[in-house]
Design a protein around this nucleic acid. Structure first.
Lengths: 105, 105
DNA sequence: TCACCATATAGCCAGATAGTTATCCTTGCA
DNA sequence: TGCAAGGATAACTATCTGGCTATATGGTGA
């Protein structure tokens, strides 16, 4: 069974969400815990505006969920497939590495 | 264990290879069999130059391998993780779909 | 009501890249 | 040797988007 153009586009959009280091960094921070936007900003070296923007993109892709708590918004990974994809990607990079230095998400 | 900036970049690059419909279409054609460039071109609606370009990108990412046979170059999927990633992505899209229409790569 | 904090959004710019056309390189064969 | 076919590459363009600054929105406490 082959996917048509529209379905391929949807798959591509999903992967595109993972195709940027900043978004991966956000995902990595969220791996352990739910976090507020400002907490995430504190962990990364980019602006609050950019973190919000990338979180929106991740949310639109269905990869993170949010809930409000007072003035804060707490984000978390919405789907375990996120971890699965990251693990598979790291496994491949570890396999391909000439000098192994075990990546683990 | 957290990935550093360079490692995140490498993971992002890997996902980026999957983040374009044309490349996914190529991967999809290669799912069953090894194929020549012109065979692939015949299945898709884009130019030979573009197929070569995208194949090079997939090859650089370690996702496809090539071997020459006469004047032809035959490409195949180099790593089963390709299928695994595609399956996980399709599974998610199927789960998220309001009206299920089972995607399967 | 006001000041303040957390988050989201708007508008802009620079860099990246998918796709095109044209051209080059390589191989096999007459 | 020459030519034709299969692939790769170059150069260019249009589009997309990550990141920035500035601003808007919304909740909280005094």
């Amino acid at each position: 069974m082959k996917l048509n153009a529209q379905q391929l586009e949807r798959v591509a959009n999903l992967f595109r969400a993972f195709a940027e280091p900043t978004r991966l960094a956000i995902v990595q921070e969220l791996k352990a815990d739910e976090m507020s936007v400002s907490d995430i900003v504190g962990c990364l070296s980019t602006s609050q505006a950019n973190v919000s923007k990338q979180l929106k993109l991740l949310h639109d892709a269905g990869l993170v969920s949010r809930r409000k708590q007072g003035t804060q918004v707490l984000y978390r990974i919405a789907d375990p497939m996120v971890f699965e994809l990251c693990r598979i990607a790291c496994d491949k990079l570890n396999r391909d590495a000439v000098r192994p230095a075990k990546l683990k998400f």
